[in-house]
């Protein structure tokens, strides 16, 4: 049984009737066709499904789509503006902060909020801020490098 849901996704309004049990991540992937947000677990521990709701990083595998009614959701696909990578995306590329790439969208979305809250984080603050995101490939060092790099480049740009 569908419930009408209106969600702003990456700036565009999406209106659908959605079964209440559809998770936000499923809504984004299956209804909106935005498959950049990934699922790595069912217990909200891996962070691969991280998106922003009203600017706050959340795990979209642990939210029903109906709960996001009226909210603004930003996914990895919505970060790059006018074809230009977001500074965090750029930094992940620059610092080889990804290998298989599966955790990467969630990692980047978390880093975006992290840098919003702490524009000049220490390495320890970065590591702490990324606690909710598992990566099995990189060993994290290059990810921390990348977030540090993004902070630096944003400062340089400011």
């Amino acid at each position: 049984m569908g419930v009408p849901v209106r969600i702003h996704v990456n700036g565009a309004l999406h209106q659908h009737d959605v079964e209440p049990r559809v998770l936000l991540v499923e809504y984004l992937r299956d209804v909106c066709g935005l498959t950049g947000t990934h699922v790595g677990c069912e217990s909200s521990l891996c962070g691969a499904c991280t998106v922003l709701i009203d600017g706050q990083a959340v795990k979209s595998c642990t939210i029903f789509a109906v709960q996001a009614e009226g909210r603004a959701v930003t996914t990895i696909e919505g970060l790059a503006q006018e074809g230009r990578l977001h500074p965090v995306q750029e930094a992940f590329w620059e610092r080889h902060a990804l290998q298989c790439g599966y955790c990467t969208p969630g990692m980047i979305m978390t880093a975006v909020q992290l840098l919003k809250d702490h524009p000049q984080p220490t390495r320890a603050e970065i590591a702490h801020g990324l606690k909710g995101n598992l990566c099995r490939c990189t060993g994290y060092t290059h990810i921390i490098d990348a977030v540090e790099h993004a902070a630096g480049s944003r400062q340089g740009a400011a």
Partner: peptide, 21 residues
């Protein structure tokens, strides 16, 4: 050198098996 494969991955537009419909 930074990787050739990364842009699609950091943009979230790469295709993993669960992305196939």
């Amino acid at each position: 050198m930074k990787r050739v494969e990364d842009p699609r991955l950091v943009k979230g537009i790469a295709t993993y098996v669960d992305d196939l419909r």
